[in-house]
Design a protein around this nucleic acid. Structure first.
Length: 481
RNA sequence: GCCCCCAUCGUCUAGUGGCCCAGGAUGCCAGGUUCUCAGCCUGGAGACAGGGGUUCAAAUCCCCUUGGGGGUACCA
């Protein structure tokens, strides 16, 4: 059975780059009818926070991902939070020490740093020189009794290590270039490498799907799997996602967090679709698809090896497509908080004119790429309009006045202003005034909205309703008198 | 510095030796849709990083260069 995991560290908001890793793990698990596991890697005590973990899970759920095992749902291989697994790492570390796979290192961070600098200056690889590996018994005893802090380092054999990456094929590393690395810090917490290998072993992970930034760490992990007596899982290193500036998308880019997109009112399925398009393309070349549509055909080996740039414009296009197709009722509900925040509709949802709201959302959905943008679009429907001096002058002209008057007389003959009636009305006005095109529409648009641009006029008139339309026209009929 | 990975339109990609003087999408430009912005429709410009090989034939295979990214921590 396939078992994969997404293992974020709760040190901030989940950004698109990491979320994408979760998506492909999830997709892979579904493709192979396996389990998707969420594990929280919070061994970096200084930067990890519980609220981040909760936010992260909420964001993932919002995206539509579900996991079979994790901190919130439990599972047979828990706990799923590394800070709650400390005793496990200690036990295994002790065993490593006992079996001679690891040793205590008494070098201080300052000493290490200095030696690194020296190595760099002399053009040598700045790796740990393994000096504590060969401490004599006397030296070890002396250190032990001195009560000095120590780390535990893993003995890295000097060998060539080759492994097959599902995406990149054969990758090989010369381990003589890698120093003995720390598996247990002096404060008793495990290092990332150690915790990962231990957890992936104990949690029976079969496939490790993660970012390419871990590629060079992989040989270290493989060594640890061997030490743990376990066949290493299969690896698949996905290309990374960059920002428009071609630097790695990171937590520093707050705007690229899942939470941010959620707040802006992007539809989760649109974002999910876009993320799947980064580094992968479906066989049929259709760019709009649901995860369900591609489950059967998804092959991780076909994923791109090169990194990709996150393209906000394409996301916006895709998001717009989804907005156009989404169920109106859903969009209306989604719109309400934004309109409330802008003061356009009441805080009390029961008093909101939903019919009008639905119509409004339906009219402007073509003009926006995420729901928060609705605020700029709908001002004219909820506020009294302000007409500039220029526009007053414009509407005072003889032709403008004749158009407005004709239009006014026509709408007085009816009691609703559906799009059809509006179009018929304009035809009549056109015949009467002999004005067509822009000359015909613009005066009415300006009188009705105070703007020269906006959504389709017939839609605007419909939402405004006949009474408001009359009132707004009346204001300018007075101009002439 | 050293190690590793990568390299097709601005961007995301299709392409696994002949179907490719390279296809799609987005973005951009133009025209259309009896108003505008947008949307939609139609059309257009736009790429195999460079140099060597291998081969009857190379975007596709090999080598070098260049460029980009990652790693080289008691971060993950």
């Amino acid at each position: 059975m396939v078992r994969v995991r997404f293992a974020p560290s709760p040190t901030g908001l989940l950004h698109i780059g990491n979320a994408r890793m979760a998506v492909f793990n999830w997709l892979f698990a579904r493709r192979h009818k396996g389990a998707f596991i969420l594990r929280i890697e919070d061994t970096d005590v200084a930067r990890s926070e519980r609220k981040h973990m909760e936010q992260l899970m909420a964001d993932l759920h919002w995206l539509g991902l579900t996991w079979q095992e994790g901190p919130d749902v439990g599972g047979p291989y828990g706990p799923y939070i590394q800070s709650e697994r400390l005793h496990i790492y200690h036990d295994i570390c002790r065993k490593f020490l006992h079996d001679g796979l690891a040793y205590r290192c008494y070098c201080t961070p300052e000493e290490l740093e200095e030696r690194r600098q020296v190595a760099k200056r002399t053009g040598k690889p700045p790796r740990y020189d393994n000096r504590c590996r060969n401490l004599t018994d006397e030296q070890n005893k002396a250190f032990e009794t001195s009560g000095l802090n120590f780390t535990v380092r893993f003995k890295v054999p000097e060998e060539f290590l080759v492994f097959d990456d599902l995406i990149r094929g054969a990758c090989q590393f010369d381990m003589s270039l890698v120093g003995d690395f720390v598996i247990m810090r002096s404060d008793g917490t495990p290092s990332f490498h150690f915790a990962v290998a231990v957890d992936d072993t104990l949690m029976q992970i079969t496939h490790v799907i993660r970012g390419e930034d871990h590629l060079s760490n992989t040989p270290c992990h493989i060594l640890l799997f061997h030490a743990l007596n376990r066949k290493p899982p299969q690896f698949a290193h996905l290309s990374l996602t960059m920002g428009a500036d071609r630097t790695l998308l990171s937590k520093r880019h707050g705007a690229f967090s899942l939470s941010e997109y959620r707040k802006l009112g992007y539809l989760p399925e649109a974002l999910l679709n876009y993320m799947m398009l980064l580094g992968w393309a479906p066989k049929d070349k259709k760019e709009r698809f649901k995860a369900d549509d591609v489950i059967e055909t998804f092959e991780i080996s076909t994923m791109s090896k090169s990194s990709s740039v996150f393209d906000q414009q394409k996301l916006d296009w895709l998001s717009g497509q989804y907005l156009r197709e989404a169920e109106l009722e859903r969009l209306t509900n989604l719109a309400i908080p934004y309109l409330q925040a802008a003061g356009f509709v009441s805080q009390d949802e029961n008093t909101i004119d939903r019919a009008k709201l639905r119509l409004t959302v339906d009219t402007v959905r073509n003009n926006i790429s995420c729901m928060s943008q609705i605020v700029q679009e709908v001002n004219i429907f909820f506020n009294d309009i302000v007409i500039s001096e220029n526009h007053i002058e414009f509407l005072s002209s003889e032709t403008a006045q004749s158009i407005l008057l004709s239009f006014y007389n026509e709408i007085c003959k009816t009691n609703t202003l559906s799009p059809e009636i509006f179009k018929d009305t304009l035809k009549t006005v056109q015949k009467e005034t002999k004005v067509t095109g822009k000359g015909l529409y613009l005066p009415i648009r300006v009188a009705l909205t105070g703007r020269e641009h906006g959504p389709e006029l017939y839609g605007v008139a419909h939402i405004l309703g006949i009474d408001t339309c009359k009132k707004r026209i009346e204001r300018f009929l007075l101009v002439k008198k």
